[in-house]
Design a protein around this nucleic acid. Structure first.
Length: 722
DNA sequence: AGCACGCCGACT
DNA sequence: GTCGGCGTGCTC
């Protein structure tokens, strides 16, 4: 057979395909193993690039090692990889790596081994007799066998080695398929109407973007699950993206209630055999519904009839390092490729989505729509939100109105939630003798005091040191002062004010163990906690029937700094937190402490007028040409040597294209000028909508050669401005 | 990203 | 005299 040259894309951060020799043509999508320098890598046969890549070919091509016994990578996924590469400017191979996230799954799965009675004879101990007793006709997994016999797994393994047990392959158990015909909870007329609109979109099987908007409790999930059912009934598959933290047992219970079977789950915590099996099941088309966090978008699922992005405004859909993609935006690309609708669900949609779908009165983009779900009858209305003006107040972190609110709630046997988006005891430690502030040696950031651990931590790089006894600068004793509040300090203050109250903390790192977190949430739900103090992880989803008072300790925190989405994010976060109050029988009350009671975000929250605030924000963005009325890209130049980094950043700026509608700001030291020991300079590129920003960036940056030890990170449509 | 190759400090 | 630090360069 004639030798053929095949282009292969490899999961390494290089922006090119590599040519190999094969015995014959291999269709694009074929999964192959190839030699790569001293290594062997698994890659995917790709379409040949449109024109021969510049740069020289090697004298001799090496041969494809073997074809793997895995389903070919679907065309749609290859096109997604190509599109994401072009949009994010990430190296081609780095994007492929998102797809080939489970290399082991590409190998034929090893059969699971079960044990049955073997032929050999040996001295039988009591434990061994027990194992043989419980062993029936059908083979059992070793762990199951050991459990039933009440012995250790070592006994079972030992018996297998002696030949007392025969190992036989067991078939992989197939999880039950979701049943679309199983009827869901009865829908309200408004829900049924919205569901019908989504079902019609699924039936059309065309690219479309539908915003599904409604207050918490309006029943958005039930509505889009009807669309999921329709897609399944038509023999199509479904992908549901959720922020990592929204992938909760409660959500899964709702799914199972509707479909009688669980979906395939995908998130970062999955490891080992479960991760491998899930990937394989999806690749082989045996998972009708996949539910996962942002990385699930790159699973090799084919035949999609619907994509749902729930909590579409959530900024955790944006990946800030490596391939800087936004899963919501990439999902829209995927929807185009798959020719299926994408449902974006949220109680507080992003400005981007509101504008795109015409929800704020702008002309909607073609093939978009908005469904607005009203609150359900009998559902608790959103709680009353009151602002507490902190101007001219000094001293304690909790104002008198909030303290009175706490006392009243506890006296009535109700629960309270205090929200402060700051882990630890205090965000800053300073010396009262010399004024020295304790900073991180690797980052331009203050060390955060964590009293429970008796350590100072850097929240950016993980650096930590023991809580010092005296000032490391002047040596003064007992001079170190904790400045500003963190949740730990708040807990201390509440304990002082309400000594009899049962107070607990909940943050991303505390309690440490998932089981302890679950126990804490149970305690909160059952009323065994009076005051829960937490960071933003308490904002989402939880249903605490006895919770009537929510206190936002520092409503202004998110508004500081020059982040273009600060107002939007603060509104979304505080709205979510506020929604925790009054979900049970008794009405809720929300107190937001603020130094800016006249700020549009605060006024919108207090008046419950979301649309007005969104319009105001939209107008500001339009006026300043900010997203979605223009695009941004951040170029972060970093390296261990500050002056080389600065010089490289200036060189990049000098090479900037002179194009109508494209502005380059900077370079300037990034807000976090030192991060993990690397000095950072930032350029901000602003483009008008008619400019093809990624294409301009590619042309600009392609010829740039960076000096040694200097790196460039391109972040198109950045969400983090650090 | 890995991995090898290559030139300078503290050890059996 | 070697082991090993990580800087540099390459991978069809």
């Amino acid at each position: 057979m004639a030798e053929t040259i095949v282009p292969v894309l490899l999961p390494v951060p290089l922006d090119q395909v590599f040519d190999y020799l094969a015995d014959g043509p291999l269709p694009p999508g074929t999964v192959v193993e190839v030699p790569f320098g001293p290594r062997r890598l698994i890659g995917v046969v790709w379409e040949a690039p449109p024109r021969p890549e510049e740069g020289r070919r090697p004298a001799r091509l090496r041969a494809v090692q073997r074809r793997l016994d895995a389903p070919p990578l679907p065309d749609q996924i290859r096109r997604l990889v190509d599109r994401v590469r072009l949009e994010t400017l990430a190296p081609w191979g780095a994007v492929l790596k998102l797809v080939l996230s489970v290399p082991a799954a590409l190998e034929p799965p090893e059969p699971r081994l079960g044990y049955r009675l073997g032929p050999a004879e040996a001295r039988l101990t009591a434990a061994r007799k027990k194992v043989l007793e419980v062993l029936g006709d059908s083979p059992l997994l070793p762990a199951e066998l050991a459990r039933r016999a009440g012995v250790g797994s070592a006994v079972v393994r030992g018996m297998a080695e002696l030949g007392l047990l025969d190992a036989v392959p067991l078939p992989e158990p197939e999880p039950p398929a979701p049943d679309p015909a199983r009827s869901g909870p009865a829908l309200s007329p408004a829900q049924a109407e919205a569901a019908a609109a989504l079902e019609a979109a699924v039936d059309r099987a065309e690219p479309a973007v539908v915003l599904l908007e409604g207050v918490p409790g309006a029943g958005k999930t039930e509505v889009y699950l009807e669309a999921v059912a329709r897609a399944l009934a038509r023999g199509r598959r479904v992908l549901v993206l959720l922020p990592e933290i929204a992938l909760s047992p409660a959500w899964l219970a709702r799914f199972e209630a509707r479909f009688g079977a669980p979906p395939a789950l995908w998130h970062s915590e999955l490891t080992g055999a479960v991760r491998r099996r899930t990937w394989r099941r999806i690749a082989e088309g045996r998972a009708p519904v996949v539910v996962g966090a942002r990385s699930a978008l790159f699973l090799p699922q084919s035949g999609l009839g619907l994509i749902v992005v729930d909590e579409e405004h959530d900024s955790s859909f944006k990946q800030d390092d490596g391939v800087t993609y936004h899963a919501r935006d990439a999902a829209l690309i995927r929807g185009e490729i798959e020719s299926c609708p994408v449902v974006l669900a949220s109680a507080t949609p992003s400005i981007e989505t509101l504008v795109r779908t015409g929800a704020l009165g702008d002309p909607p983009q073609p093939r978009t729509g908005r469904l607005l779900l009203p609150a359900r009858h009998g559902e608790a209305p959103l709680p009353r939100i009151e602002l507490v003006d902190l101007r001219a107040r000094r001293g304690a972190w909790l104002s008198p109105p909030l303290v009175q609110g706490l006392e009243a709630a506890l006296a009535a046997g109700e629960q309270a939630l205090l929200f402060l988006n700051r882990r630890g005891y205090a965000p800053l430690t300073l010396c009262r003798a010399c004024g020295h502030r304790l900073g991180c040696p690797n980052c331009s950031a203050w060390l955060v005091s964590h009293r429970l651990r008796r350590r100072l931590l850097c929240h950016h790089c993980g650096y930590s040191e023991p809580q010092p006894e005296h000032c490391p600068h002047c040596g003064a004793v007992d001079s170190l002062h904790a400045a500003g509040p963190g949740v730990e300090r708040l807990a201390e203050e509440v304990a002082g004010l309400l000594p009899e109250a049962r107070v607990r903390l909940l943050t991303s790192d505390q309690p440490a163990r998932p089981s302890e977190v679950a126990a804490l949430l149970d305690d909160m739900a059952s009323g065994a906690i009076d005051v829960l103090i937490g960071t933003q992880i308490v904002a989402k989803g939880h249903h605490f029937p006895g919770l009537t008072l929510v206190g936002v300790v520092d409503g202004d925190m998110g508004l500081a700094g020059g982040d273009l989405r600060a107002a939007e994010r603060t509104f979304q976060l505080l709205y979510q937190v506020a929604g925790r109050a009054g979900r049970g029988a008794r009405p809720g009350r929300v107190l937001i402490q603020t130094h800016m009671p006249d700020h549009p975000v605060m006024l919108a929250l207090a008046r419950g007028d979301k649309d007005a605030a969104c319009r105001l924000e939209r107008d500001e963005r339009r006026l300043s040409g900010m997203p979605p009325f223009g695009r941004l890209a951040a170029l972060i130049v970093s390296g261990p040597d500050a002056s080389r980094v600065a010089e490289a950043a200036r060189a990049i700026a000098r090479a900037a294209p002179v194009v109508e509608g494209l502005t380059v700001l900077g370079p300037a030291p990034a807000p976090l000028a030192l991060l993990r020991g690397r000095h950072r300079e930032r350029l901000l590129v602003k483009a008008r909508p008619e400019v093809d920003l990624p294409a301009r960036l590619r042309a600009w940056l392609r010829p740039i050669r960076l000096p040694a030890r200097v790196r460039l990170l391109v972040d198109v449509d950045p969400y983090s401005f650090l």
